[in-house]
Design a protein around this nucleic acid. Structure first.
Lengths: 355, 355
DNA sequence: AGGGGCGCTGTAAGTGCTTACAATGTAAGT
DNA sequence: ACTTACATTGTAAGCACTTACAGCGCCCCT
C-alpha cells in the first residue's frame, strides 16, 4: 500500500469540513452544496489524495474493480515454463484484453489473475482476488474448481463456460456447437468428407467436451463416420497434439479424410507432423482448427477454423458482471455468443496464399 | 467482496481463543502453543474462513499480492479493439506469464492490470492496483507516466525499462544494445551488409530508443551507413510499419540492404509489404526483428531476430519486488537480462524451412 | 518459598473509509 | 413571529484485521 499518503482526514481539515462530507463528495452523493464540493475537490487535488481502496472496501463501498481468473496449467508450465505453446494462453489473452478494454470503458479496472489448475489447486489467488474486487469473471476451466464455486456463491461472478451454467451468477458461453456443425457441414458438403477424425482438448474443459459432442452429433447428421481410433486425446497444447498424431501414424491404419482439432494450436502441430510424414495438407488430408488465433491466417497452409469472439467474450463478461452488481442482470442469466466458420486453405478451399 | 463469510471473530469463538491469537496463527507468528494453533486451524477449516484482504491491508499487513501494470494503447485499441496485432500485447503477455508463474511459485498472487496510455491517461487503475498489492511492476511505457512515478515513490516498485532507471525502486532492463550490436555485426560480417535501414518503435518507449541508439552506434562501429531516409518511424504495430514501408517504397530511392525492425511484429509487416512489391526477402533485401515472438520461427521466411527473455523478465521482476519487500534488495537496484541473437532465414542465412 | 524470566494469550487502540442518525441552519408556509 | 420541512453538515459506530502492551501462569534458580 502507498506509504504516507493523505487520508480523508487531511482532506477534511484542509477543506474545513468533516470527513463525512469528503466521503460524500467522493461518492458523488447528492446533498452537498456546490461551493462545499468545490472546496473539497480543491483540497483533494492539492493533497493528491487518493482514497484507500482497502478502507473503502472494508467499509462496504465498491472498489471499482473486477477480477478475472484464468487457468495456469501447472504441469505444462513446470515442464516448459517459457514456452509460449499454450493455447489457453493465447485464447485467454484475447479475453483478458476484451475485458480490460470494456472495464476501462466503464470506469472499472480489471485485475487478471492466473490460478493454478491441476495438482493441488491453490485457492489462495482466487481468495486474494475475490476480496480485492467487486465482481469476478471465471474462465473456462477455473469454473470447475470446487473452491471457485464456493467463491462464486458468495459474490457476483460470471462464468465463461462452454457448457453447464451457473446457479450462482451469470454464464456466458460460445456457440461451440453451431461452429462445429457449420464446419462439419462444410467439410461434408463442399469437400465430400465422410471419414472424420478429431483431436480433443482437456476433458475437464467444458469447451472441449462441448466441441467433441458437437462433432459426434454433426458427423452423424451428415452421415459421416468417426472411428474411435481417429478420436485423439490432446490437451489443447501443440506438443501433446503432435505426439498424439505421431502415435496415430504409427498405427498404420489409413487416416481419416480430415482431422478436426479442438483448437488452432493443436491443428498447427497436427499439420506440422503430417507434413513431415509426407501427408500434405490439404492435398492428402484436411485439418481444421478452432479459435482463429492470429497466426491461423498467416501460416501455410492457412487454417480453416471456427472463429471464437474472444475479445467480445471479455467485453460481454464485464458487462454482465457490472449488470449483476447493479442489479440489472439477474442471477442465472445466460448469454451465448455466436461463432463463425472461417474457411481458408487447410480444408482444401483454394483461398491459400502464403505470407 | 464475499458476502457473509466468516470473520476472525467467528474463528476465535469456535477455537475459544482471542482474535489476536487467530491473527497470530494466520501470520505464522511464533509464540503460539502447538495445540492452540491446531485448534485455530481446525476452526478456520470448519468455517471456510478466509481473511479479508481489505481489512488486512488496512491494518498494515501484507496482502500476498503483486501488481503488474501494462500499457493499453488507447488510440490503437479504439480503432480496432479486437485486432491482435499489437506487439506490446504479445510481448507483455509473456512477461505477465513469467511474473504470474514466479509469483505463484513464491506464494504470491499476481494481478495484471491494463493502464490506458495516451489520451487522458487515467491513473485510476494504477491507484486501484497499488492499494490492492504489496508491490508493483511497471512495464515499459507505463513507467514514463507521471502518476506512475508518484505511485512508485510511495510503494515498492520495479520498473521494466529499456533505459533510464528508477530512483524509487528497482529496475530491470534487457540488454537491447548487446542484442542489436550482435545483430549488426552478424549482418556486416556474414552478409556483408553496409547500407542499413531501421524501423523504430514508439518514441516514448525506453526500449525503442535504446534499440535505435544501439543501431546507430553499432552501424558506425562496423563502418556501415544509416541514411536518414531509411530510418522509418513505427509504433511497434504491424499496421503502422506496413504503411511506413509502403511510403518509403513510393520514394523510389534504392532500398538499403537490410531493414532492422524494432520488433518482430513490425518485421512481419515489412516482410509482407516488401514481398507484395516484389522485393523478396532475403533474396533482394534482408529484414530482421526483435523479441522472437512465437510466430517468428513459423512464418516464411523465418525471422532472424533478437530474443528477449520476456518470460524471464517477468520472473526477475517478481523476484526483485519481493526482494524489495523483504528488504533484501535495496532501492535503486538494477538488473540487466541478456538478449540472444537468433539467426534464421530472413537475414539470408540458409536455415529456412517453411512450416 | 519467593522472585525473575519467559512463553503464551488477551485487551484495546488504531487503520481509512461509509453511513445511519443527530444536529444545525435555512426557507417556506401560516 | 412560529412552525415545519428540507437541505446540508457533523458525530460516531462500525468494517475485519494487526500489533503494542499488559497480564498470567509456569519453571527454574537461589
Amino acid at each position: 500500500m502507498a506509504k504516507g499518503s493523505a487520508t480523508i482526514y487531511d482532506v477534511a481539515e484542509v477543506a474545513c469540513v468533516s470527513i463525512a462530507t469528503v466521503s460524500r463528495v467522493l461518492n458523488d452523493s447528492a446533498n452537498v452544496r456546490a461551493d462545499t464540493r468545490d472546496r473539497v475537490h480543491a483540497a483533494i487535488k492539492q493533497l493528491h489524495f487518493v482514497p484507500s481502496t482497502a478502507a473503502r472496501s472494508l467499509s462496504g463501498g465498491r472498489r471499482g474493480t473486477i477480477g478475472l481468473a484464468y487457468p495456469l496449467d501447472e504441469e505444462r508450465t513446470v515442464a516448459a515454463p517459457s514456452r509460449e505453446d499454450d493455447a489457453s494462453v493465447l485464447y485467454t489473452d484475447a479475453i483478458i484484453r476484451g475485458a480490460s478494454w470494456q472495464a476501462s470503458q466503464l470506469g472499472y479496472s480489471l485485475f487478471a489473475c492466473a490460478v493454478r489448475i491441476g495438482g493441488k489447486t491453490d485457492a489462495h489467488p482466487l481468495h486474494q482476488l475475490s476480496s480485492a474486487v467487486d465482481g469476478i469473471i471465471l474462465t473456462d476451466r477455473v469454473v470447475n474448481n470446487v473452491k471457485a464455486m464456493r467463491i462464486a456463491k458468495r459474490m457476483h461472478a460470471v462464468h465463461l463456460s462452454g457448457s453447464g451454467s451457473s446457479r450462482f451468477g451469470g454464464t456466458i458461453r460460445v456457440d461451440n456447437g453451431g461452429g462445429i456443425t457449420a464446419l462439419v457441414r462444410h467439410l461434408a458438403g463442399v469437400h465430400g468428407t465422410s471419414d472424420f477424425g478429431f483431436v480433443g482438448g482437456i476433458p475437464d474443459s467444458p469447451d472441449a467436451t462441448a466441441r467433441f459432442d458437437a462433432v459426434v452429433s454433426s458427423v452423424t447428421e451428415v452421415g459421416g463416420r468417426l472411428a474411435p481410433e481417429n478420436v485423439l486425446v490432446g490437451d489443447f497444447s501443440m506438443a501433446r497434439a503432435e505426439s498424439a498424431i505421431e502415435e496415430r501414424l504409427r498405427h498404420g491404419n489409413p487416416l481419416p479424410d480430415v482431422f478436426i482439432c479442438a483448437n488452432d494450436q493443436m491443428a498447427l502441430g497436427v499439420v506440422r507432423v503430417l507434413h513431415e510424414s509426407g501427408h500434405r495438407v490439404p492435398d492428402k488430408i484436411l485439418v481444421t482448427g478452432f479459435d482463429d488465433i492470429p497466426v491461423a491466417g498467416q501460416i501455410f497452409p492457412t487454417l480453416t477454423t471456427v472463429r471464437q469472439p474472444s475479445f467480445e467474450l471479455g467485453v460481454a463478461a464485464v458487462n454482465m458482471v457490472i449488470g449483476l452488481l447493479d442489479g440489472e442482470v439477474s442471477v442465472g442469466a445466460i448469454e451465448t455468443l455466436p461463432t463463425t466458420l472461417v474457411v481458408r486453405g487447410s480444408c482444401g478451399c483454394p483461398i491459400d496464399r502464403p505470407l
